[in-house]
Design a protein around this nucleic acid. Structure first.
Length: 127
DNA sequence: CTTCTGACGAAAT
DNA sequence: CATTTCGCCAGAA
């Protein structure tokens, strides 16, 4: 990992909300964390601390594919398959079947996000 | 101040 | 479908 961003802690906290067998895009995470962007979320995943139960492998790009990089992409795919996620011939995940619905009410409450605003944000998510 | 750079995204081709 | 192009933005130099 190269840089540390101040939004990383909040990003990790949100990624922990993604349940087994579901996936979210970098943009989805960023849309709920002020001061972050999809790219920042990518950097956060690259620097995920171990031993903190952060399911980094459940975060993929908006096209529904696993983002390529130096290493770890194959491992990410394997982890998802173990959870029951399937890939199309073009290596894409079906948003319709596997997209995360969003964080818990407790998370929204804690981060002071109005439910109506959340619905608007959610409407822009892929799928 | 400017420049540079990425596990990104959306739209155009 | 795939590929290209351009926009995006925090933070370090």
């Amino acid at each position: 990992m190269a840089r540390e961003y101040k939004t990383f802690p909040a990003i990790y906290e949100l990624v922990k909300e993604i349940p087994k067998g579901k996936v979210a895009s970098y943009g989805m995470i960023a849309s709920l964390i002020p001061g972050s962007t999809a790219r920042i979320v990518g950097f956060a995943m690259a620097g995920t601390p171990q031993g903190q139960n952060i399911p980094w492998w459940r975060v993929i790009n908006s096209a529904g594919k696993i983002s390529e990089r130096d290493g770890g992409a194959v491992r990410q795919r394997n982890l998802l398959v173990e959870e029951g996620v399937t890939f199309s011939n073009s290596e894409k995940v079906s948003w319709k079947d596997y997209r995360w619905g969003g964080p818990s009410d407790a998370w929204l409450e804690k981060h002071k996000i109005d439910f109506i605003d959340f619905l608007e944000t959610q409407a822009k998510w892929p799928g």
